Amino acid sequence: MLPKINDILFIQVNSVDEEEAQKEFKSRIADIRDEVMSIEIPIEVRTGRLKKLYTGDQLSIYYMSEGGVKNYFNTQVEGFKRDVISLVLIRKPKPEAITKVQRRTFLRVPAELEISVKLADHHQFLAITEDVGGGGISMLCDGKEPIMQKDAVSCWLLIPYRNGTVDHVPFKAEVVRTKELDTGRRLVMLGFTEISDADRQKVIRYCFERQLELRKN
């Protein structure tokens, strides 16, 4: 479902400044025409301050639809116009470019990303993901690592985007299942138990970009 006039958008600005990239803003759709949507000047959710945007800024956005579904898409600032109030013009997403995320349904994509894992006893190790999704990840680690089903872990996931920026996403998870492989490595499936909406959006954004990349190949 495409966004509609008066829908509230939750926005992150893709920035090389990690602190700035983590801020979440919200705005309202004022008008929709052909390939462009007009939105009100975004306001930072935490502080209530207005956010100045520039033509070409890359945005990661989600909005809510019926049933609590979050709809994610990427876009960019196309320009500005003055009506009764100042408005920002952004590119309207195509229906096929919108990723719908329900509570129990998350897009998962194959991906080899670096992840740091810390167990409850503070033992820490590095691993490589096998797939990534909005609800959790699967990773490959050395079979000698003392990680078992139902273990609680704290992690940092390194996420590189197509525009060259890199994000570090912290989260807590539970080991859902493990599988010993013939190679001596262990496949570990993690389900997120604590992850902020902003950080989950970063994972979803990466999955969306990765899916587009896989479709091209």
Rank of each mutant, 00 (worst) to 15 (best):
Y63N: 01
L126S: 15
M148G: 01
R103C: 00
E114D: 14
V117Q: 07
V117S: 06
Y63S: 06
I147Y: 08
G68C: 05
K150R: 09
R104S: 06
V84W: 15
S60K: 10
R108E: 09
R104A: 09
G133E: 04
A97G: 03
V84A: 14
K118W: 04
T75A: 11
E130H: 11
L87Y: 01
L157G: 07
E66R: 14
R103Y: 03
E96S: 15
P95D: 11
F73C: 12
T75P: 11
G136N: 03
M148E: 05
E145F: 11
C141E: 06
S116L: 15
L113K: 08
S138A: 14
I90S: 12
G136V: 12
P110H: 14
V88S: 00
S138Q: 12
K94T: 13
S60Q: 07
Q76R: 15
P95S: 06
N74V: 03
A111P: 04
V69N: 00
N71K: 00
S154G: 09
E114M: 05
K94M: 11
R91V: 11
T129G: 13
E96L: 05
F106N: 15
V101T: 01
S60N: 10
K94Y: 13
T129I: 10
V109E: 06
S138P: 13
E66D: 13
L140V: 06
S60Y: 12
S65I: 00
T105D: 09
R108G: 01
L140K: 15
Q124A: 08
I137R: 13
I61A: 13
D142W: 03
E78G: 09
I98W: 03
G134Y: 04
H122S: 09
K94W: 12
K100H: 10
L107M: 12
V101H: 06
V88L: 08
I147M: 01
L113M: 03
I147S: 04
E96D: 15
E112W: 02
I137S: 07
K118Y: 02
P93T: 03
V88C: 03
K144S: 12
V132M: 05
C155W: 04
V88G: 01
Y62S: 00
I115D: 02
E66Y: 14
P146I: 09
S60R: 14
E130N: 12
E112L: 11
I61M: 12
Q102H: 03
E130M: 13
F73Q: 13
V153P: 03
L126W: 05
K94I: 04
G143D: 13
S138G: 14
D131L: 04
I137T: 11
E96I: 14
H123A: 12
H123P: 00
V132F: 03
Y62P: 00
I85D: 13
A97S: 14
Y63L: 01
K100M: 09
K81F: 10
C141Q: 07
L157S: 09
V153Q: 07
H122P: 02
F73I: 05
R103M: 08
M139G: 02
M148C: 02
I85V: 15
